[in-house]
Design a protein around this nucleic acid. Structure first.
Lengths: 180, 180
DNA sequence: CGAATCGTTGAAAGCAGTCAACTAGGGTGG
DNA sequence: CCACCCTAGTTGACTGCTTTCAACGATTCG
């Protein structure tokens, strides 16, 4: 596995791991600006693929490592990035281990909105380029449970289901469900 | 939170996060040689405490950061550590999101045995210094489910429950359940 | 010897999973 | 143009794994 480092410039990617029997856990979604490839270096079946068209900036591993050696400043930056990702991973463990389906979905929607907002988008309408199966595999649920929970949040007036996304009708209530 | 870095020299610690309502997720156990404090720097309620007596080597954050700046070599080491932890975190996400209670417990026992073995211990008898509640909060289960699963594995001849630990009677079967 | 804590076990409930049918778009080819 | 199919998503009925509630046993400690 001669993987490389990537900088995602445009599009959305899913990062996941597979069990031998096919069960999948998506460990994260990547958005433009995200840095990929740190973790795939270590052993284990780690995969990433695009959701829709993407533009990436690819760095061969070895040359990149050499390049970094000369720039301790850059290494620090990489390190901060790894630590941030580690923190996000820990947050996600809390979600997977200790939250209900409704909390999971609400947390996902609010978090996804915030990430898109940070890239400079509107905050009420939230596009969801990934499939329900992707969301299910990210939240440790089944596709049916995700669908039912979306419907419930819609009926409750928290969100409105739109083609290709949702609208956060009641952000406060959604954030309450996501309360960390 | 002026936390510091720590190097655990002796003993066992639990690292966890709490939800506002008290739900707890243990994100990892630390053993001698483990490096703590990278993630607690970032915001969020992150806690760590000792399971039994511990000996740690403490580094104040600021001086340590300055010290590192002069040693790019050391920074690389730290970075590798962070990446390794990130990989473990991803493995644990798979466990929390996609595995059954029995698989979770078996995976935990095999993994814990391997970590102890790496520190130079026997491999058949596995001491478990943490409580059932700790194990439950690590695996995203309840204490009752953990207890029942232990009992089941015992009845099935996979393990033998001992005071303060277990014996891996059938490592092959346990590893099959933990199959990653 | 209680009192307290930890762990185990049982019975019942509930949340999410499974199985299956149905709907809605979207693309293709006749 | 429309019939057809294929995929994604929704919904329903039911199952079942894990949780919840509760009692009991074991060990420790004051």
């Amino acid at each position: 596995m001669t993987t490389s480092f990537y900088n995602l410039l445009e599009g959305v990617m899913r990062l996941y791991k597979l069990l031998p029997d096919g069960r999948r856990q998506i460990v994260g979604f990547a958005l433009p600006g995200d840095f990929l490839g740190m973790t795939s270096s270590s052993r284990h079946n780690f995969s990433a693929d695009a959701i829709g068209p993407v533009v990436v900036c690819r760095f061969s591993r070895a040359p990149f490592a050499r390049f970094i050696d000369d720039k301790p400043h850059l290494l620090r930056r990489i390190n901060e990035l790894a630590v941030r990702e580690l923190g996000q991973a820990q947050d996600h463990m809390v979600l997977l281990g200790r939250r209900s389906a409704e909390e999971k979905v609400a947390t996902f929607l609010v978090g996804w909105r915030d990430r898109l907002a940070a890239l400079g988008g509107k905050t009420t309408t939230v596009p969801l380029p990934m499939s329900r199966q992707d969301i299910a595999d990210y939240l440790g649920l089944t596709i049916e449970t995700v669908s039912r929970t979306f419907t419930k949040l819609d009926r409750d007036g928290v969100i409105e289901i739109l083609p290709g996304g949702i609208s956060l009708l009641d952000p406060a209530r959604a954030e309450a469900l996501a309360a960390a």
